[in-house]
Amino acid sequence: MPRTTNSQSRSRPDIADALAEAIFAGEHAPGEFLPREIDLCEAFAVSRSTVRSALQVLVAAGMIIRISGQGSRVQPLEKWHLLDPRVSHWLARFAHPNPVIQREIFAFRVAVEPFVARLAAENATAVDLLAIETAWQGMIRALEHDDLRFEGKTHDQYDVEFHEAIFNASHNLVWAQISHVLKPAIALLVERSNQSADRLQDSMDRHRRVMEAIRLRQPAEAAQAALAVLERTGQDLGLEGLSRQLPNIETNFDSSTTLPHNDSSQTQEG
């Protein structure tokens, strides 16, 4: 085998990444076998040991199982370690064409985020409220620019930071940690759902309602407002079936709707 230079090595794709992309795209469905090791060696122009190392990465991620004498079979989605940082990163990069994964992420958010918003309304400190408002203001300011960017960040990045700040404001260690590992997955749905200017403005009104309910220490209202944000997301993603199942959602959030302001004691830390 010819000696590989550093430049040649750097130009080669990451085999685990390439196989993960193919799996997320549905090219290798659960229950199907990946190409044989020898075929992967030829396709990527690498040694068998290199291919085996890449396959082991996917085994550790729960995405494939190695069967002696048969090959590498793609595992069912429920076996994947979606909270593994590398798998979560793959979600953000490669799950765009996979409607099943998008639906599963959305269903998880529907189940979790209203509860987390309720906790945030009960436990948010002044620092938390500032982080939520800063992210919301970033989204608003980004909308004022054609490229949807403000101070070096995109509208979508501020959107993700908004949701992450709410998870942190719950002051529950588990939810805060989950927000970090799910950040790429949330970013996937944010990017897919934020499409037109009209939809973005409607989304901003709904996000504002979440922010205000948390600031005013209104747990029930915060949960309802979080559901309304997800209803908009579901509509934009074409997941109307799930959206229609969301309970007791107010859908008429227009920019003229305001909530009464609380006194200063409600925004103090503690």
Score class of each variant (00 low, 15 high):
residue 136 W to M: 11
residue 21 E to W: 03
residue 213 A to I: 00
residue 8 Q to D: 15
residue 108 F to N: 12
residue 59 V to L: 07
residue 238 G to K: 01
residue 270 G to L: 08
residue 229 V to P: 01
residue 71 G to E: 06
residue 200 L to C: 08
residue 91 L to T: 14
residue 174 V to M: 09
residue 41 C to F: 08
residue 207 H to C: 06
residue 248 N to D: 15
residue 6 N to D: 15
residue 165 A to C: 04
residue 202 D to V: 09
residue 99 P to D: 05
residue 235 Q to K: 10
residue 242 L to C: 05
residue 253 F to G: 03
residue 78 E to P: 05
residue 210 V to T: 10
residue 114 P to K: 03
residue 97 P to F: 04
residue 45 A to W: 13
residue 13 P to M: 01
residue 183 K to W: 04
residue 144 E to K: 13
residue 233 T to E: 13
residue 189 L to R: 00
residue 234 G to Q: 03
residue 156 D to F: 11
residue 201 Q to N: 14
residue 182 L to I: 05
residue 2 P to S: 09
residue 252 N to F: 10
residue 29 A to K: 15
residue 113 E to M: 03
residue 221 E to F: 05
residue 97 P to Y: 00
residue 133 E to Y: 09
residue 2 P to N: 13
residue 217 R to M: 05
residue 204 M to W: 06
residue 20 A to P: 05
residue 256 S to M: 11
residue 89 H to P: 11
residue 89 H to C: 15
residue 41 C to N: 10
residue 114 P to V: 01
residue 142 A to K: 01
residue 52 R to E: 10
residue 67 I to Y: 12
residue 117 A to E: 04
residue 135 A to S: 08
residue 31 G to K: 07
residue 237 L to V: 01
residue 41 C to M: 14
residue 258 T to F: 11
residue 207 H to Y: 05
residue 161 E to D: 14
residue 211 M to C: 10
residue 232 R to P: 01
residue 37 E to S: 10
residue 209 R to A: 10
residue 69 G to I: 04
residue 45 A to P: 07
residue 105 I to H: 05
residue 213 A to W: 02
residue 201 Q to H: 15
residue 156 D to H: 09
residue 269 E to R: 14
residue 27 E to H: 14
residue 70 Q to N: 15
residue 94 F to P: 04
residue 202 D to N: 12
residue 259 L to P: 10
residue 95 A to L: 00
residue 20 A to Y: 01
residue 107 A to P: 10
residue 159 D to T: 03
residue 164 E to N: 14
residue 169 A to Q: 05
residue 102 Q to D: 06
residue 121 A to H: 01
residue 165 A to P: 06
residue 11 S to V: 08
residue 92 A to L: 13
residue 76 P to K: 06
residue 105 I to N: 06
residue 64 I to F: 01
residue 207 H to Q: 11
residue 129 L to F: 09
residue 94 F to I: 03
residue 7 S to F: 11
residue 32 E to A: 10
residue 45 A to E: 14
residue 53 S to H: 15
residue 34 L to V: 08
residue 251 T to P: 09
residue 150 F to N: 07
residue 123 N to Y: 08
residue 179 S to I: 05
